[in-house]
């Protein structure tokens, strides 16, 4: 059994509009048999945080094009993307790329 993990989720660049306009979410992922990875986190977010139009956040089992995922201030591509195993106190940012100016 993996222990519960407390993590800090941040949404920005407009992605926060999908989660009630709130940028910061401190959440605790419950204890489960397997360790939590990002893929499972996305399922959890979809079930617990997304108010409406989940397709604007997730597509298939990943995030939709145009959203960048950052784990502890690094591009998730450098961290193993969906397979990254979440550690207690991790910081995960979902940022929508901005177009404008």
């Amino acid at each position: 059994m993996a222990a519960p993990v407390a993590i800090h989720l941040e949404f920005g660049g407009g992605a926060e509009l999908l989660v009630d306009g709130v940028k910061d979410h401190h959440v605790t992922l419950p204890s489960q048999p397997e360790p939590w990875d990002v893929k499972q986190l996305l399922v959890w977010i979809r079930q617990n945080l997304l108010k409406e139009r989940p397709e604007l956040f997730v597509q298939g089992d990943s995030v939709r094009p145009g959203i960048l995922v950052l784990i502890n201030d690094a591009d998730w591509e450098l961290m193993g993307e969906l397979d990254y195993q979440l550690q207690d106190q991790d910081n995960v940012v979902f940022i929508s790329t901005l177009h404008g100016g």
């Binding site: 604007l56 939709r64 094009p65 145009g66 960048l68 790329t97 177009h99 404008g100």
Partner: peptide
């Protein structure tokens, strides 16, 4: 490299 696939139109907000 970062965004190989363009995002859906409705997610692109302008000023």
């Amino acid at each position: 490299c970062l965004y190989p696939v363009p995002p859906p139109s409705e997610t692109v907000t302008n000023c």
